[in-house]
Every structure is written in structure tokens, then in C-alpha cells.
């Protein structure tokens, strides 16, 4: 699953560390999310969506099942 997290974070001008503190996750989680290595839980996806004030589908882009298998 692709996402625009890095772009949105940079638009807000905050570091991974700061975003991690806001979302109450580790910095590594933010890094993995940005690299597309990790798919967030629905709870974390909602937290991110609320923080950026955007719908989930504007942040996370579903690409089909084939790309999901590595997560």
C-alpha cells in the first residue's frame, strides 16, 4: 500500500520524531510507513487521518492484493 505520509509530513514541516510523538508510535514505525514497508492498523490510519485532517483514502492508496503480500 502506497501512502503520501512523507509528503504530508514535510508539508507540515515536522520531523519523523515529532510525528511519532503526536501519534504515540515509535520513530521507526513512521519511517517504515513512509517507506511502504509497514501497513498501519485501522486505528493508526484513523489517527493519521485525523491529524492531517484528510480522509484515509487521500493518505493511503490501495494497490490491490499482490502488493499486500509483503506486509
Amino acid at each position: 500500500m502506497k501512502n503520501n505520509l512523507e509528503i504530508l509530513r514535510k508539508e507540515k514541516n515536522i520531523s519523523q520524531e515529532e510525528l511519532a510523538l503526536i501519534l504515540e508510535v515509535s520513530r521507526q514505525t513512521i519511517s517504515s510507513l513512509e517507506n511502504g514497508r509497514y501497513c498501519p492498523s485501522i486505528l493508526l490510519a484513523f489517527k493519521i487521518s485525523i491529524y492531517f485532517n484528510l480522509p484515509i483514502e487521500k493518505i493511503f492508496i490501495y494497490e490491490g492484493e499482490q502488493n499486500e503480500k509483503r506486509n
Binding site: 511519532a20 510523538l21 504515540e24 508510535v25 515509535s26 521507526q28 514505525t29 517504515s32 509497514y38 498501519p40 492498523s41 486505528l43 493508526l44
Partner: peptide, 11 residues
């Protein structure tokens, strides 16, 4: 607390 409850770490 964040480190221990982090969902990626738990996974």
C-alpha cells in the same frame, strides 16, 4: 510506554 505499545513493535 510508546516503545512498548507501538503496534509495529508488537507485530
Amino acid at each position: 510506554e510508546i516503545e512498548e505499545k507501538d503496534e509495529r513493535n508488537l507485530k
